[in-house]
């Protein structure tokens, strides 16, 4: 037991050691270029120069890099390149490094990256190994709020040596969101994003990514809560919340959304009666969680719900 704990401690201390070795072993680069210390979720990482070979292990990091005009060399794309294309609205050249859940470390290492961007919840456990490959920063995408996502863009920009550009990207984004918000007519409609799976509903609350987008453009979220998602709920809960606007996120294939159409309880929901139910893509509304997605959701709300172009 003691052995276990001490070895674990060693393991915990190792990244700091590895980074120290790394910085010492690169004296030539260090004298020519500046060195920055990036503070992230799992500590601090020293980055030298301007990384250009970057591996991104979450969708939102890919979009953040894209907004900074950088194409990552490797992406954990779940082996579904069409998702990356959907996320960015264009095709980019990169190598897949496997799934976000268990990215393939061998493939990451042969890309010889100079920066790895990882997610705290998904990749916290392999932080040490990632750090052994390249300087790694760990951000919060999976559990992150809209503000976290914005902050992540600035942190990533700082890591690649152009913090000002990251701040500019966020400022531009804020301006666009403010413009959309200004076009939205005054209303007291209650909005909800509900993910329809094969057998049940997951309701996104005010604490979710979509909830904070709604707040940013000045519309109400129907469900106020501190947890971002209420999972595994039945139709009755949806009827009880009774949203005025319902965005139903689905994957291709049959979901419970198809099954409830004839149910008179479903038809009693305000959004259904007002014709304000919209089926939307689950990748874009619930998986990507980035600034482009935020603008897409905001624009959708503006054009679909309020018919403003």
């Amino acid at each position: 037991m003691i052995g276990l704990v001490s070895a674990r401690l060693m393991r915990a201390l190792r990244p700091a050691f590895a980074v120290a070795v790394l910085t010492m072993s690169a004296p030539i680069a260090a004298q020519a270029q500046d060195t920055r210390t990036i503070t992230h979720e799992l500590g601090e990482t020293t980055i030298t120069g301007e990384p250009v070979r970057i591996v991104a292990l979450e969708f939102s990091f890919v979009q953040a890099l894209d907004s900074l005009d950088i194409v990552p060399v490797g992406i954990a794309d779940d082996n579904q390149p069409e998702r990356i294309e959907q996320n960015l609205g264009k095709t980019i050249e990169y190598s897949s490094v496997g799934t976000r859940l268990e990215p393939n470390l061998e493939l990451i290492s042969v890309l010889q990256p100079d920066l790895i961007i990882a997610d705290e919840r998904r990749h916290g456990a392999i932080y040490e190994q990632l750090s052994a490959i390249a300087p790694t920063i760990v951000l919060n995408s999976w559990d992150g709020s809209y503000e976290d996502i914005k902050q992540a863009v600035v942190t990533i920009a700082d890591a690649i040596g152009d913090k000002a550009k990251g701040e500019q990207v966020v400022a531009d984004h804020n301006a666009r969101m403010a413009e959309i918000a200004s076009k939205i007519p005054a209303n007291d409609k209650r909005f909800m994003l509900a993910v329809a799976t094969a057998d049940n509903w997951s309701l996104h609350t005010s604490a979710s990514f979509s909830g904070s987008i709604f707040a940013a453009i000045g519309v109400k979220t129907a469900l106020e809560a501190s947890e971002p998602v209420e999972s595994g709920v039945g139709l009755e809960r949806l009827v009880a919340i009774n949203p005025d606007v319902l965005l139903v996120a689905t994957d291709p294939g049959g979901t419970i959304f198809n099954q409830v159409q004839d149910n008179s309880a479903w038809q009693a929901i305000s959004a259904v009666q007002n014709g304000l139910v919209f089926e939307v893509n689950r990748n874009q509304y619930a998986r990507f969680r980035d600034l482009r997605t935020a603008e897409l959701i905001a624009n959708d709300v503006l054009s679909k719900v309020f018919n403003v172009q």
């Binding site: 039945g234 009755e236 009827v239 149910n263 008179s264 309880a265 009693a268």
Partner: peptide, 8 residues
């Protein structure tokens, strides 16, 4: 009525 008859 809808909830009682169509859900519960």
């Amino acid at each position: 009525t809808a909830l009682i008859w169509e859900v519960r």
